[in-house]
Each structure stands twice: as C-alpha cells, then as structure tokens.
Design a protein around this nucleic acid. Sequence first.
RNA 1: GCCGCGUUCGUCUAAGGGCUAGGACGCCUCCCUUUCACGGAGGUAAUACGGGUUCGAAUCCCGUACGCGGUACCA
Length: 527
Amino acid sequence: MLYVNTLQQLQTTYFCPMEKKVRVRFAPSPTGGLHLGGVRTVLYNYLFAKQHQGDFILRIEDTDQSRFVEGAEAYIFETLKWCGLEPDESTLHGGNYGPYRQSERKDSYKKYAIQLVEQGQAYYAFDTPEELDAMRTRLRTEENPSPQYDHTVRMQMRNSLTISDSETKILLSEQTPFVIRIKMPVGETVRFNDMIRGEVSFDTSTVDDKVLLKADGMPTYHLAVVADDYQMKISHAFRGEEWLPSAPVHILLWKYLFGLDAMPQWAHLPLIMGPHGKLSKRDGSKYGFPVFAMNWKDPKTGEQTEGFRERGFTTEAFVNLLAMLGWNDGTEKELFSLDELVQSFSIDKVHKSGAKFDFEKAKWFNHEWIKTLPVTAYAKQVKSLFAEKGIVLENDEYLEEVLSLVKDRCTLLADFYEHSYFFFKAPREWDLSAVSPKWNEAKATFFTSFSKTLLSINDWNAAALENLFKQLAEQAAIKPGELQLPLRIMLVGGKFGPTVFEIAQLLGKEETSERITAALYALAQEQ
RNA sequence: GCCGCGUUCGUCUAAGGGCUAGGACGCCUCCCUUUCACGGAGGUAAUACGGGUUCGAAUCCCGUACGCGGUACCA
C-alpha cells in the first residue's frame, strides 16, 4: 500500500508538472480608485507569482452594473503600470483564459447555478425586495439586529423549497424574477487551511443562504470567483481578510462544482487600518494623507481624491512601504527594491493582524529612496512639478546637477521646488532683515570687491571660491562667518539651501556676480 | 446580537520554550554645521488581563477583556 502511494505521488509530480504552475489573480471591481490595500494585494500576488515563475492575472469583477464607474478600469491599469506590477494576462494584456471581464462571461455562470439547483444544493427564490424587507423587520430584535436568510427562515419564504415543482416551473415560465440561493447545510463544519492563518473552521448552520445568481442574470461575487478561478486555473487565491466570513460558501461551491482537489490555496491578507478601523478614502482627506495610488476624480460626484504619485512619492518607495505593511523578511532590513522583494518575499511571513498606516513612516521610505536613487529616476516627475509652478526647465544636465545637490533634504518630490527653485530663478526679494541689522560700509565694500574678483577665477568651483572668499575676508579683517549669511541671502533670497559655495558653483560666476550686485543695490536702498 | 479573525514600545515590527525583549518611524538631548537639512552619538517607550503546562513562557493550552472584519440581488 505504501508502495502504491509513493508511486502515485511520483506519477502526479512527474506526469502533471503543468498542474503545479502558479497562477494568481487580482480581481478588483471597477468602482473607483485603487487604495493602499488594493495595491498591496496586487503586490503580494505579483511577488508570489514572479518568485514561482507563475502568472499574474488581472480580472475585472464588474458583475454589479449599478456600480459601474467610468474610467475606473483604465485607472487600475495605469496604477499597475506606475507601480511596475504589470499583469501577464488581463483585458488589456490578453491571454488564453479570457474574457477577463466578468460581464463578458455572463452566460457561463448561469449553468453552474442551475447545476447546483439540480443537485439539490441551491434553490430558486422568488421573494421580492419588499418581502425580504418584511422578513427582516419582522425578525429583527435587539438580540438579532440583522436577521439572515438562512436555514431557520428559508422554509417560511417563497422559494422552490416551499412551493411545488410545478408551481416553480410556472413561475419560471412566466418570467417571474428570481434569484438562485445556495442551500447551506445544517450542522456541518467547513475547514480549510489558510496560508496565513492556518486552519480555519466554520459551522455551516451559522452561514446564510447567499444569493449566487441575481435577478438580472448576473452572478454575485460568490459564484463568479469560484467559476472564474476554476476556469482560469488559479492555483493560489489572495484576498483581503474581509472575505474570510464568506469563505465557507466558496469552499462549498468548489466542493459541489469542481471538487476540492482543484481548489486554489487561500490566503486572507490582513487589513490596512486607518486611525479608526479599515482604511478608507475619508481617512485620507480627514488626516491629510493620500490613500489612493494616484489622483482619482469621481466622474459622477466630481470628488477628488489625492494619490501618492501626485503627492510626490517615488514608485520604489510606494511599493517598498506597501510591502512592509504586513510583511518583513525576519531581519532588520527595511529598504527593498522590487527585485529584492521578489527574491525575499514569502507568504508565511505575512502577518495575521492588521497594520495601521503611518504616514510619517511612509514619508521616511520616500526620503530614503530619493537619497538612494539616481536623480535621473525621478527628474522627469520633478520637471513636471516645476512646470506646474511656472518654471520650465530646458537644461537637463543642469537640472540633474541641481537635484543631486539638494536631494538629501527632500522628503517628497514636491520638496524639490522649495529647495532648488532659486537655481532657476534669481531672487527678486531678499530676506534683508537677516542682514540689515549688522550691515555696514566695510561689508558692502567687501562684497563689491568680491563680486568683481570672482570673475577672474579660472578654475570655477566651490573650493576655489571659498578660498578666495576667506582670503578677501581676512584682508578686510572681517570674520568669514559674518559674511556667509549675507552671501546666502544675496544668492537665494533667504536662509535656506545647500552650502553657499556649492550654490555659487552651480550658478556660474556671471550669475553669482550679478546676484551679488543686485542684492547690494537693494541693501543700499534699504539703508 | 451572532459568526470569524486578531492582540509585543504612540506606530511598523524582531525574538517560533532559555541572556538586561532587538530594530525602524516619531519625539527629546547632545555633536557636526555661522542657513536649513543630511549625518553621527545618546535617550524615551511594549509582551492586554487571569489561570494553567514547564526547571524555565512574549512564545504552548484555557478563559476574560479589548480591537477589527462580516452579517446586501456590493465587491
């Protein structure tokens, strides 16, 4: 016996290697922008697929036409593109298991629902919305604030279990609106092994008779996931923890329809929390941080929701911070590139409990990535940020030099503006209050001669300039420190920016000299 | 209410029976710097509670509390 088992195992692994192919899917409903939790689910799917040489599929779950939102699907694709998490198969990328939009697979679901009815595991229900309402209000008590359509009430409702077969046939032939509900068994235990939580079990008596097929002929999520995961040969199914309570329904459907052997392995990801419960886009506007990947404007309400991209996050930082929200590799390493994540990610190190999103930490990740990345990685983004402020940058080489000089002090890409705009625009106003009080004739003379002398420097660089500056200061018997702040104000207009001599180096000698002259004039007016 | 899942510094987390419970963010102090940052050195702060099991528990078991999720012809 043992011998046979071993042989069988050998055969399965040897003869059916294709069955082991990893195929995962992200299945959003196109109802709006993608928030942190959604993108993280994409990321974990992607990492798992790539590290197992598997496929990452994107399936659009648009079974609820009433919630269709124009542009939402395109937004999802753009987000994935920005994050560098491109699917292998999707409505956009094609593939052998299409269509990848559930509304286009409508016909394939009904036969499964009917099969279940025929097998006695589901039934037709003709209750109108009003009747359902009536049942719920009738049964509602303080003890039971939300009565379910379950085994305790189904025999009191209008469905194919309570009326005769012939009556059911008549209703169906008369086109009476109906739904198909799963008939949850009583007193059974459904168990499964979650990749993150280990064994999870449910008593089927406590689960309601969920609608599988809606009156409009569309499946609900419950039927659609199971049917599509089967047809698309999904091997591992990752989704948010909010799905855990309905997992027994899905498992039963697998058992009834396709057999448990074909069922994907489940992994219910912990939720990402806001300050009060599951993170929502409301939290974002309320607390001043983005929750969507990119800006999203609801076409119906016109409501704007800010995105990480527009807030000035690099994709590297965004992906990195998302990965760390619910996972780490067991070491103290926190900075991971996407490639490194593919290498080190492992599903069994994903946490069980939800993580509260911390915007301060998110900014830290971005700061680290701005410092690490070559400026060419984000120069374009910065360029467009400057354009928005009315500064058009033409010289890329100069821009890159400037960005390299100030990047250490930028947390968000938007910070580049305030830290470097003066490289592209001479100050027209100066913070004279920092200079005037201690201003005198000797200093004015010093700067006049300095601005002239520096024009004769042959090898123009920060060090040479600093030498000249200190030399002249010594000759004038003024402490160099007393002169540095004025010089800074002259060049940039205020008390900010990198080391003065480096600013001057990048500005070039003519520009430096001109700025000093202009500021000297303003100071003379002031006195 | 019922069902399910959780619980280590304020936050993200490490430690999977054995040192003073480690790191990161934030905050505070000092150093560097005659701008502001960066950087460097310190500091602050946690095993929800109660029972077991064990020579030994953050870790295993049970209970309680608390939190979160679900409870739609939404996903």
